[in-house]
């Protein structure tokens, strides 16, 4: 287990390093950061002063190492737009995105696991059809359009929930549904496939033959084994969702990190964009690492492989 853990950890670190290099090079593609920082109406002398002050005149590699060293200490530079430390901006907005991500993945799991189980227990039944319908629609519906349709229906026409903003928990209902629905088809299909496979296994037949109650067989013996790959998928999906929060938060004007990313891109505020790309990637790397370890713990066969 320790060997497995160390190997996974080393890989995660290497991935994180590569991503940091990519997101750093974005700033270089963005043009001269000194001009952007100086703002409009700055003289050549101003720009020159900023260039020396921030070290933009030094070799690229040196700048990268300097940026990386600061980033590791949580210093992602200064926002061109707000002129405040990037890390403060992100720290302020991240909780909203985290709440959205966690509630969306909970919504997806609560919807897809029961439906997946029911669909597997009774193939071709009404539940199976409903599950299939939900997953076919879910895969084809563009999330930003789905969000708009929900706003028109539930916020404008029925007035059940607020249209946009992030002041109360009601503001999170629609974004949670839209973002969660995106992950539902994959989780549901994996649960269904896993359950179908497990239910055919010998130990389930044995459990049934021993006269254990059907409910107990289903949830204690079958689901526990079927759900192992779902854990990994859910973690991966949560990572994708946080990245996808850019679109959802923009539609609902939910004031989180995704919305900040969108606004910063529109404002050419690249230190913020760069930091957000790195942070979203790191969260994904951590989530997959966690999922791998959790899987290895749940299923001893993985540790050996």
């Amino acid at each position: 287990m320790l060997h497995f853990f160390l190997k996974r950890l080393a890989l995660a670190a290497l991935v994180a390093l590569t991503v940091s290099l990519i997101s750093f090079s974005l700033l270089f593609l963005a043009g001269d950061p000194a001009i952007a920082l100086a703002g409009e109406g700055a003289t050549d002398a101003d720009i020159h002063a900023i260039r020396t002050q921030y070290g933009f005149d030094r070799p690229v590699m040196e700048q990268y190492l300097f940026w990386l060293k600061n980033a590791l200490a949580g210093d992602f530079g200064t926002s061109y737009y707000f002129k405040t430390p990037v890390i403060n901006l992100i720290a302020e907005k991240m909780p909203t995105t985290m709440i959205l991500g966690l509630s969306a993945i909970s919504f997806a799991i609560l919807l897809s696991i029961p439906l997946g189980v029911l669909a597997a227990v009774k193939p071709n039944s009404l539940f199976d059809r409903i599950a299939l319908f939900i997953s076919v629609i879910g895969q084809a519906i563009p999330s930003f359009w789905f969000g708009l349709i929900l706003i028109v229906t539930f916020a404008v026409k029925l007035r059940w929930v607020p249209v946009s903003g992030s002041d109360s928990w009601q503001h999170f209902i629609l974004p949670t549904i839209v973002l969660g629905y995106y992950a539902t088809p994959a989780i549901m299909r994996l649960t269904r496939a896993g359950m179908l496979e497990v239910l055919r296994a010998d130990y389930i037949r044995t459990a049934r033959a021993k006269g254990i109650r059907p409910g107990k067989v289903l949830f204690k013996h079958a689901l526990r084994n079927a759900v192992i790959p779902v854990v990994g998928l859910a973690a991966v999906q949560l990572g994708f969702m946080l990245g996808g929060s850019v679109i959802i938060e923009s539609i609902f004007a939910l004031n989180g990190a995704g919305f900040l990313a969108f606004e910063s891109i529109s404002r050419n505020d690249f230190p913020v964009v760069q930091a957000l790309i790195l942070i979203f990637s790191l969260i994904y790397v951590l989530l997959t690492l966690l999922a791998d370890l959790l899987n290895a713990w749940l299923d001893p066969r993985i540790r050996v492989a």
């Binding site: 991935v15 590569t18 990572g239 850019v246 790309i277 997959t288």
Partner: peptide, 15 residues
Amino acid sequence: TVRLSMPVVLVALAV
């Protein structure tokens, strides 16, 4: 793995 860890929408928007 590196590619999967990068948020597609965000990177695409930025580029």
